[in-house]
């Protein structure tokens, strides 16, 4: 990696202030940024080290607000937190199947939501792809086995996060702090499809930081599940993943949030499928039609047609599993 200046700011305010300068990047866990710097995909002039900002390292829970998770909370902390495991196990599950134990000790929840895509054309310095400011998505006509089946233009990379679908299924929001503004947005607002004027998958500005992830209190009887299909048993990004959180009225679904990972440039919430299961007791038939609805509009590229079948299978399986558990 190219050399850089390094600053450890004393507080959050100085941190965002420093980020306003051109060529500055923030570093927390470093597990996403440093590989990009090593392959010289990015060469910031200056790094602002967030790790020392103790004010961003917390995990709070109360009955009114639900969970408030400081951005520097590591994936390992989330995975092993007793309250999370008890109240929102879907998040612990998602964290536990992300990356590897060491990476989970290093990577933070804030960084996880802001991570770059893993598309191999994006990662290879040899390709100046659309996402990196070029004018071609090489994957659309190239090797696209791991790419998007939804919204695959102008960039068909998929969002790699395991936490994001789970958090979105939980109705989570992120608190963003910038130099001039701060505020809270839902994850549906936070993740955006990349466009020519904003070639990234979030609304986050260069001088803004996620400072907190908020998970609202769940409605009474609620359960969730995160399923992830991989091409090896562990330490791989999802071929497809699905996060489903259902609130129950006995065995009937009061409401459900269903989010797919690995199928689109952003975590992909599927309201049409949610609509199908609402107010229903989940049967195999309902689960099947929800899974069909979830993939409505999916358009495979040359090599990724399998993802449609796979995603449908996971949606159905997630719903059936939750329904089974609800019966018990």
């Amino acid at each position: 990696m190219r050399n850089f200046e390094h600053i450890t700011p004393p507080d959050l305010e100085s941190a965002v202030d420093l980020l306003s300068e051109r060529g500055t990047k923030s570093i927390a866990g470093g597990t996403d940024l440093l590989p990009e710097m090593k392959s010289r995909l990015r060469s910031p002039r200056r790094l602002v080290n967030l790790k020392a900002l103790e004010e961003l390292r917390y995990l709070k829970h109360n009955a009114r607000k639900g969970f408030q998770i400081g951005a520097l909370t590591t994936l390992a902390e989330i995975e092993s937190n007793e309250l999370i495991r008890e109240k929102i196990p879907i998040l612990a599950q998602a964290a536990s199947v992300a990356a590897s134990p060491q990476l989970r000790n290093m990577g933070t929840i804030g960084g996880n939501l802001c991570q770059s895509v893993r598309c191999w054309y994006y990662r290879a310095p040899e390709f100046k792809c659309w996402l990196k400011g070029g004018d071609t998505c090489y994957a659309i006509e190239g090797e696209n086995k791991f790419h998007a089946i939804l919204e695959s233009s102008p960039c068909c990379a998929v969002h790699p996060s395991d936490l994001a679908p789970a958090l979105m299924a939980l109705g989570a929001s992120v608190h963003i702090t910038g130099t001039d503004e701060e505020g809270t947005v839902s994850l549906e607002e936070f993740f955006v499809r990349p466009k020519a004027s904003n070639r990234q998958m979030t609304i986050l500005g260069a001088n803004e930081l996620i400072t907190e992830v908020q998970v609202p209190m769940l409605d009474g009887d609620s359960s969730g599940i995160y399923l992830k299909a991989m091409d090896r048993k562990v330490w791989a990004f999802a071929l497809v993943s699905v996060a489903v959180q259902v609130s129950w009225d006995k065995e009937r679904v009061k409401g459900a949030r269903i989010v797919l990972g690995g199928v689109a440039p952003i975590p992909w919430r599927v309201p049409a499928a949610e609509e199908i299961v609402r107010d229903q007791a989940i049967t195999e038939e309902i689960a099947t039609s929800a899974s069909e609805a979830a993939l409505e509009g999916a358009q495979p590229l040359r090599d990724n047609g399998y993802k449609i079948a796979l995603a449908k299978a996971l949606v159905k399986r997630a719903l059936m599993t939750l329904a089974e558990r609800a019966k018990k």
Binding site: W120, Y138, E143, K233, V234
Partner: peptide, 28 residues
């Protein structure tokens, strides 16, 4: 799991790394 992937249009290796070239892990 293991396969080197070439981009058919440019002849470049797309996964010259241990992330996308998947060797078995402990759990495999």
């Amino acid at each position: 799991t293991e396969e080197r992937v070439l981009d058919r249009h440019t002849g470049l290796v797309l996964n010259p790394n241990l992330e996308e070239y998947k060797v078995p892990t402990a759990l495999d």
